[in-house]
Simulated assay, not measured.
Amino acid sequence: MAEAARRVVLVLGTSAGGVGRHVRMLAGGLAREGRQVVVAGPASTDEAFGFSEVARFAEVPISDRPRPLSDLSAVERLRRVTSGAQVVHAHGLRAGALAALALAGRRTGLVVTLHNALTATGAIGAIYGLLERIVAKKADQVLVVAPDLGERMRARGARCVADAVVPAPPLDPPGRTVAEVRAELAPGDRPILLTIARLAQQKGLETLLDAARGPYAGVVPLFAVAGEGPLRGALQARIDAEGLPVRLLGDRADVADLLQAAGALVVPSRWEGQPLNVQEALRAGVPIIATAVGGIPGMVGDAALLVPPGDAAALRREIARLLADPGLAERLSAAAGARPLPDEEAALRAVREVYGALPGAGR
């Protein structure tokens, strides 16, 4: 490995899920190779993901939305943290744009991985459009988790765009039996349909609630939603008011337990890249019903039933079809278990190749 590529700074903003876990995996892997790795981000991310256990952590106040004074402070802090680095790899649009501004006038290689699509409109949408143009102009390499993100960044003028490799971590073995999970959620033979999502606008949970209204022939399924977020109060109020067969489980660490008891994973999102919960369901051989958005179709192949985003009638129809046809469920389960999925080594190999191709970086 050439000396020029020894110091890498990984940058991220506020994260409570997949982005943080991905950066933690990269930091640990790159450090094991002998690289000098610094992770820069909000203090809350180090508390959540333990970056300082595998690399040096530098606190940088990258917030989850535009805040001019905080952003100026973040740019100045990043300029100091990235001094002497040969590669800066930012994760997320805001982190990427702030890193680009911090590197102005330097020859440091900049890689930006975009994990999410722009869904905001109005003034916030305009600001994020500006951030996209900054990243497109300044980044040496843009990595994307879905084809539509790549098309958007090319249209913004990005010079080099490639697919990101974002594997889910291995699932822990289940800690409870299916009977024990059912005793908590839905005793007897009632079908359990699992959704794992932050309770936020992007996840399309209003469509899930529309679909949950039914009607369904025979036993009404239980829709179990694992996750927390800003929409919890509004979702629970609607569930109670309409008597919907939906339970909000809150954040759960027992994903493997929930998956083994689920008849299907339901993903009603407005947009997704390479969602970890879909990868986990594929590894567990669980049938999937999902919206045909972002990177999902390419991930699932023939292992899922796909519906348009926001189409509650189509979602309800595919749920009913799966519940009524055990043979279909078996075929989807077999196809899920057979899907090829990337692992940690594939992700590390991909970033090594990207870093090595940067101007002056070497391998």
Score class of each variant (00 low, 15 high):
A136G: 09
A158E: 03
V135T: 10
I192H: 03
V166A: 11
K138A: 15
R182N: 02
Q202T: 09
E180F: 03
L209I: 04
V225M: 10
A183H: 08
A217C: 11
E151M: 13
I134T: 15
A200K: 04
D172S: 15
Y128D: 11
A158K: 10
Y128Q: 14
E151V: 15
A183E: 15
P187R: 13
L131C: 11
G129A: 12
V161A: 12
R238M: 09
P147G: 09
R159A: 15
G229K: 08
V135D: 00
I127Q: 06
A197N: 02
P191D: 07
R190I: 08
A162I: 00
L193Q: 03
P170F: 03
A200P: 03
G204R: 09
R159N: 06
R133Q: 09
A211H: 00
D189K: 14
A217L: 15
G214H: 08
G233M: 06
A136N: 05
G214P: 10
P215F: 04
G204P: 11
I196H: 02
L194S: 04
L209S: 05
A162M: 05
L231A: 13
E151Y: 10
R159C: 03
V225I: 15
D148C: 10
G175N: 02
G188F: 10
L205A: 09
K137F: 13
R198A: 14
E228T: 14
R238F: 09
L208Y: 00
A197I: 04
D172K: 15
G229L: 08
V225C: 09
I239Y: 00
A234W: 04
G229R: 05
V144P: 05
Q202M: 13
Y216V: 12
A212P: 00
E228I: 10
R213Q: 14
L171V: 01
V165L: 01
G157Q: 10
R198Y: 11
A155W: 05
R152P: 08
V219C: 12
R152C: 02
P170W: 05
V220R: 11
A139F: 11
F223R: 00
G229C: 11
V220D: 07
G125Q: 12
A237V: 03
P191R: 05
P169Q: 03
A237N: 13
A237C: 05
A211D: 02
L143M: 08
Y128M: 12
I134N: 01
L143W: 08
I239R: 08
V225H: 03
D172F: 10
A168Y: 05
A139C: 10
P187S: 06
L208S: 01
G229F: 04
R154D: 05
A212T: 06
A186I: 04
G125A: 07
L185S: 06
G227R: 06
K203I: 09
G227W: 07
R156W: 02
